Simulated scan of single mutants.
Amino acid sequence: MDTSVRPQRIDSEALRLWPLPPLDDGADKEARGRIVVIAGSREIPGAAVLAATAALRVGAGKLVIATGLSVAGPMAFALPEARVIALPETAAGGFEANGAELLETALEAAHAVVIGPGLMDADATCAFVQRLLPLLRGRCVVLDALAMDCVAAVGRFPEPVLLTPHAGEMAHLTQADKDEVLADPLSAAVRAARTWNAVVAVKGPVTAIAAPDGRSWLHEGGNCGLATSGSGDTLAGAIGGIAARGATLEQACAWGVLLHAQAGERLARQVGPVGYLAREIAREMVAVLRRLEGGEGLTPTPPAPTGR
């Protein structure tokens, strides 16, 4: 590990000292933020459901899902809380690049955008994401799964976005050896963050997060049950939902990683170390979020003087 890097540890106490932007009881759905989830395909439609559900569970106020034309109708019934935009598809199941124009109005109103869960057709996805980038200025953008492949073509983002690779994906994106990434995820994240002008979260038993300016964070926790199909989609959606509420990318990522890990720990106690499903994680995130924001089980903050 690069000894010049001094990461901050992510745990419950650290996040208590890094609170999310407050939501008062009078907050309407606009105040809670708008999120656009661009996800799902004819073979993996559930990834959009998982990501979008997590975004709502952590508090995002308004949800738009953009998905393939072939699954848009069923998606609208699966998530009645969402507006669903149908995108034209390639023969291989990706999105046509010109479909980006259909999202212009929704993106203008969005606070956060998640792109990637369940997408297909790598070449089409890369072209689609590149077409989207000019429409994403000023938004909190989370690139996950196949959408991250666009980094090879973009090289360096004009504005920081968040990438969420696991070790295998990080090795693919950087042409590094997977074992080297696993051995030192922090250094891999720091190098990539500086190179790409991005916040990079290398996911694993130890999750390393790095910002372009060199700041970094480490989280250790969770369990092997989180290594299940759809788990990463849920995490990406949760990060996007937290960003929609007004958090910065790095704060949203830190909170999302901890919520995801502690939700997994709760499910492991209820179900077992393996066997719980990704669709169950978002529900448990609600309980973890309530505890963290309410301060249950944490060091209490002394009350403010009343002046009496």
Rank of each mutant, 00 (worst) to 15 (best):
F157G: 13
A183D: 14
G256I: 00
A55V: 09
F128D: 03
V274C: 04
P212H: 09
R156D: 07
V37H: 02
V286C: 09
E159I: 07
R194P: 01
A244W: 02
G33Y: 04
W255R: 14
A167T: 14
R283D: 15
A201I: 04
V199T: 12
T105W: 07
V257H: 06
H166I: 03
L50R: 03
V64F: 08
A208P: 08
A208Q: 05
P273Y: 06
V288H: 05
H172M: 12
A304G: 05
A238D: 05
I115W: 03
N223H: 14
P117L: 08
V154F: 10
A122P: 10
R191E: 08
L107Q: 02
E96T: 01
P7A: 13
G59K: 06
G118W: 01
L133V: 11
P19I: 11
S12D: 08
D213K: 06
G155I: 09
G240L: 00
P303K: 10
R156N: 09
P212N: 11
I115Q: 04
S216W: 01
P21N: 11
T306Y: 07
A97Y: 02
K178Q: 12
V141T: 15
E96G: 01
D179Y: 12
R245E: 07
V5T: 13
H219N: 14
G46D: 01
I10G: 01
